[in-house]
């Protein structure tokens, strides 16, 4: 299929883009890499009347500021693979990037596009939730920040209002010694995930000070698992029973089935992925111990 007709605008800079988005409101969508929006348009699941091309806006910085990484909306996925700040501060995200689509998608797709598309099992939305990221939205009225856990409203639904555009994402860096891991399963390499699990462990002297977890595929948005995080906190790395915690995860989630997998299979799968991710995060942390 082919998209319905639309008016194409090429924004010169951010102010121009925001003015166009303000003018056309609900009928307008920003387009950057087009790796999620254009398939939706080709299938006529998305039918914007106006496209605002934001490829000339820049917004592609990754910078460290006040204990957080500020990542521009236009950063393309493949950048993370070689970025030293990502490697140092967000190892779980670095692992997750390998699971995003395939090389051509990673070369063209952007952070802003992926988050605003809000596929329920996409990797970057899960990473935003895992790290407690803050999403920065701009409009002609100014800027606001939304916590990632409030940003995703449902499958393909976000808190972005007409006239707004995602301009950057603030990922707080894990503090002190930390490790991270991410596990996913799809039918083939680069396919939509059936389920995923990410974890960050902050540790000191062999003891977990703070843990964050995220589960993809359990609900229509990525979710944290506070019970698992509480169970991890204060645990010794050496004594961490990852498989048992993975089993506990299955008791905490009630995913839906779909055309690929039954609800029961997905529940067991996510538990298994949780066990593996926790085990690897533990092993990485233990190997890094002096």
């Amino acid at each position: 299929m082919r998209p319905k007709e639309f008016v194409y605008h090429r924004a010169r800079d951010l102010d121009h883009a925001l003015a166009l988005l303000a003018e056309h409101g609900e009928e307008a969508r920003p387009i950057s890499g087009g790796q999620s929006l254009v398939p939706m348009m080709n299938l006529r699941l998305a039918r914007p009347d106006h496209l605002v091309d934001v490829n000339d806006l820049g917004l592609d910085e990754i910078r460290e500021e006040a204990g957080a990484l500020h990542v521009g909306a236009m950063v393309r996925h493949e950048r993370y693979l070689t970025d030293p700040l990502i490697r140092r501060h967000l190892p779980a995200l670095l692992e997750a990037v390998h699971w995003i689509g395939h090389p051509t998608i990673r070369r063209n797709g952007t952070l802003g596009g992926s988050l605003c598309h809000a596929d329920p099992t996409a990797e970057l939305p899960a990473m935003a939730v895992l790290h407690g990221a803050r999403i920065v939205l701009a409009s002609t009225a100014g800027r606001r920040e939304v916590a990632a856990c409030d940003f995703f409203k449902g499958a393909y639904m976000t808190d972005v209002q007409p006239g707004e555009m995602l301009v950057s994402v603030i990922f707080p860096c894990p503090q002190g010694a930390h490790s991270g891991a991410f596990e996913e399963l799809g039918e083939r390499l680069g396919d939509f995930a059936m389920g995923s699990f990410g974890v960050v462990l902050e540790h000191e002297g062999g003891v977990i000070r703070r843990a964050a977890t995220v589960c993809g595929g359990a609900k229509m948005t990525p979710i944290r698992l506070p019970e698992i995080e509480a169970a991890l906190q204060g645990q010794t790395l050496a004594g961490l029973d990852a498989a048992a915690l993975g089993d506990r995860v299955t008791g905490l989630i009630a995913p839906a089935g779909d055309f690929q997998v039954s609800a029961e299979y997905r529940r067991a799968l996510i538990g298994e992925l949780a066990g593996r991710a926790l085990q690897r995060a533990r092993d990485i942390a233990l190997n890094a111990q002096p």
């Binding site: 254009v38 080709n42 490829n55 051509t104 070369r107």
Partner: peptide, 26 residues
Amino acid sequence: AHGACGCCTVHVDGSPRLSCLTFAVQ
């Protein structure tokens, strides 16, 4: 025509891109 098969891959300024996910005006 929705980015799943890769048949339409071309190079844009030397870099692979799916021409079915690209509008010519861009």
